[in-house]
Design a protein around this nucleic acid. Structure first.
Lengths: 158, 158
DNA sequence: TCTATACTTGCACGATGACGCAAGTACGCA
DNA sequence: TGCGTACTTGCGTCATCGTGCAAGTATAGA
C-alpha cells in the first residue's frame, strides 16, 4: 500500500495546463495527477467505520490507544484494531507501542499535504475559469449550446 | 449520495483546536470535520478504474464523451458509463447531454475546494507542531518516551 | 420509417471487504 | 511463575462491488 505524501512534485511548480486532442492521448501522457490520485489512499477513507475512527482521532488531537478509540464506535475491538492498522498502512496514522499499549495518532501534516497536492495537481490541469471542464461552478461550458437536458436534476440524481 | 462542496464552514474561520479528555468525548462533539470526511466522496475515488477515468478527464481538460473516455480504459463501455454516472452522483463530474452524445467534465473547482476544506478542517483540530498527534513529520510525539518499537518499519508495514 | 450510433440498464458471477467470535501473542504486575 | 490486560490474528459468513454480456432506449441521418 502506498504511503501518503510520497509525491510532491505536483505543488506550485506544476507544468502549465495542456489540452490533449483526445482522452486517449491524455491518458498516455503521465502527469503528477496520475501518481497523486492513489486509490489506496481513498480506499482507506471510503469506509464509514474507518472514517469515524479517523474523525475521532482528529478531534481528540492526541495519540489514543486502540481501546480508547474503540469506545467511540459500536464495533468489536478486533475490528477497530484492524481498521487502525489499515489506516496506518495507508500512511494516514502513525502508531507507537509502549508496553502493552498501542497508541495511534493522525499524520495530519502528511495527510493535509497530500490532499492539497491533489487539489493543486487538478488545478494545474484545469485552472478555474479557463479549462472549460467545470460546468456548474465557473460556467466555462457552453451551456447555451446544450439542449438543456443535463442529467443533473434528472433521473440520475438522487 | 452527498454532493461535493456542500459544507464550507470549515474554512479559515474554523474554531480553534480543542483537546478532549477522551476519544469518546471527542466523538460526541460534532465538528466540521465530521461532515467533510464523507465516505461517499472517497468511495467514488477508491476504485482504480474510476480513478483512471477521472485522471483521464482531468488531463484532457475539456468535456469528453463516454466513448472517448472509454478509449483510455480496458473495460467494457457499459462499465465506463456506470463509473462516470457514479462519479457524477458523487459530485465529482458534471454531464451535459447533446443529442446522442453525453459529455462529462470534471467539477474541478468543487473537488479542489472539498479537498482543501478537509485539509483545513483537520489542521483546525491538529495544527502542525502543536497537537502532538503527528509523529513523523513534525516530531510532536515524545518519541524518546516510547520504547522505539513503533510498528512503522516493523511487521505491519509492507 | 428504417438503420446506425451512443449510451444505459438488467442480470449473473466472481472477487473483495467488513464483521464478530474465538484463540493467540505480548506485556505488566503481584 | 501465574494471572490479567491490551491488542492481534485466523476463520467463517454475509453484503457489497466491479465486471461483461445482452438487451433496451434515445437520437441523428438516410
Amino acid at each position: 500500500m502506498t504511503q501518503v505524501r510520497i509525491h510532491t512534485q505536483a505543488r506550485r511548480g506544476a507544468p502549465p495546463a495542456r489540452v490533449f486532442r483526445s482522452p486517449k492521448h491524455a491518458a498516455a501522457k503521465a502527469l503528477p495527477i496520475d501518481a497523486l490520485l492513489d486509490p489506496d489512499l481513498f480506499k482507506a477513507l471510503c469506509d464509514p467505520t474507518r472514517v469515524k475512527l479517523l474523525a475521532c482521532l482528529v478531534k481528540c488531537a492526541r495519540p489514543c490507544s486502540v481501546g480508547e478509540v474503540g469506545e467511540c464506535c459500536d464495533v468489536d475491538l478486533s475490528v477497530v484494531s484492524r481498521h487502525l492498522a489499515f489506516l496506518e498502512r495507508a500512511g494516514i496514522l502513525a502508531s507507537i507501542k509502549k508496553g502493552r499499549i498501542v497508541t495511534y495518532s493522525v499524520r495530519s501534516s502528511d495527510l493535509c499535504a497530500s490532499l492539497r497536492d491533489i487539489a493543486d495537481a487538478i488545478e494545474s490541469c484545469c485552472p478555474p475559469g479557463t479549462c472549460g471542464s467545470c460546468s456548474t461552478s465557473c460556467g466555462c461550458l457552453p451551456v447555451s449550446d446544450a439542449q438543456s437536458t443535463r442529467t443533473q436534476g434528472g433521473r440520475r440524481v438522487r
